[in-house]
């Protein structure tokens, strides 16, 4: 298997799907001549030309809507948002159009489209450029929300997302683009809606997805050093949520910590916490703990911004609370 970056994995997925299906095209700010703001689309303009790798003006609502219309008419657009912070300008298009067309047309219209880009905190970017916005999208029926945490999952899930006939929100992260992981040479797909056990353990379940996953793996290593065997459930898809995989793990370990870099209020983590409390009540030996970002806008100061987010120590501390250690 080749060791490639998260960025390359995303690019390979786009490249392979564009080669496979002429209806797939990439549209967004700086995706073509600039090779992508984060170099995800590097080389694609040369390979596929300006008809299929389309630079747009800075007009998120407009080009997102154009992508949705193209999808309704039968194309398979990949809309790149330079970051999810800017997706808020297009939120109306996603929530009121992409997510609703099928329903309000009584099933006549499909919207096969992927909206992708970096989500969540990066570094030194302050409040408007460091937001984890997945809970907003996961809230909306009609959308699929995918959040891979490794290059392998990113490639397989993006390929599945591009082939899916529904609007898919695909979450990446600026700080993940350089992360490396093993990815097979041969083609593979990962099904949407399936969680993955990233580490098996019997003492406690750690649930996470996307960027915090690496931190959770480090926490599990530390816990293992103290004789605690943590099981890691990587959700990979937030909507539809693989509830069965979660319950199966919690029923085995009887203890659970959810690690999510969103704000805590009405979040993916808080909803999942409720689901587990509701459906695994008789199996739990302690209340479910959440490790989320603090309920504040992101500060610029580096010490503060790191402390706002989940840390390895916050995760191990929460695990020990749940284990009454």
């Amino acid at each position: 298997m080749a060791l490639i970056t998260f960025r390359e994995a995303i690019r390979q997925a786009i490249d392979e799907e564009m080669a496979r299906d002429e209806n797939v095209f990439l549209i967004g700010e700086e995706v073509a001549e600039y090779d992508g703001a984060y170099k995800v689309s590097q080389g694609l303009l040369d390979k596929y030309g300006p008809q299929r790798v389309v630079d747009t003006p800075i007009a998120e609502a407009g080009f997102t809507g154009i992508g949705i219309g193209a999808a309704m008419a039968g194309l398979r657009p990949i809309v790149e948002w330079m970051t999810f912070n800017f997706s808020l300008l297009a939120f109306d298009q996603v929530v009121n159009n992409a997510a609703k067309m099928r329903h309000m047309s009584g099933g006549q219209v499909s919207v096969p489209i992927v909206f992708r880009g970096p989500n969540g905190p990066a570094e030194y970017l302050s409040s408007q450029h460091s937001q984890a916005l997945q809970s907003l999208y996961a809230h909306v029926p009609g959308l699929i929300v995918v959040a891979p945490g490794t290059p392998y999952d990113a490639k397989g899930l993006l390929k599945s997302s591009i082939r899916n006939d529904n609007p898919v929100i695909f979450l990446e992260a600026e700080l993940m683009y350089g992360w490396k992981g093993e990815v097979p040479e041969e083609e593979y797909l990962i099904p949407i809606g399936k969680a993955d056990i990233k580490r098996e353990g019997k003492d406690i379940t750690l649930i996470s997805y996307s960027k915090p996953l690496r931190m959770v793996e480090q926490a599990a290593e530390q816990l293992a050093g103290e004789g605690i065997e943590a099981e890691i459930v990587d959700l990979r898809t937030l909507r539809p949520l693989d509830e069965e995989a979660v319950y199966e793990s919690v029923k085995k370990t009887n203890r659970c910590v959810i690690v999510d870099e969103t704000w805590p209020f009405a979040s993916v983590a808080s909803h999942l916490g409720w689901l587990i409390s509701r459906n695994c009540f008789d199996y739990l030996d302690a209340p479910v703990e959440l490790v989320t970002s603090e309920d504040v806008p992101m500060p610029y100061n580096h010490t503060l911004e790191l402390e706002v987010q989940p840390t390895v120590k916050k995760i191990t501390d929460a695990a020990k609370r749940v284990l009454y250690l």
Binding site: F25, G62, G65, I68, G69, A70, M72, A73, Q93, N96
Partner: peptide
């Protein structure tokens, strides 16, 4: 007004194909 870009997207498909 929210369907105005949708319409342009359908026109994008006509041109694309």
């Amino acid at each position: 007004g929210a369907h105005i870009p949708i319409a342009a997207g359908m026109a994008f498909k006509i041109k694309y194909k």
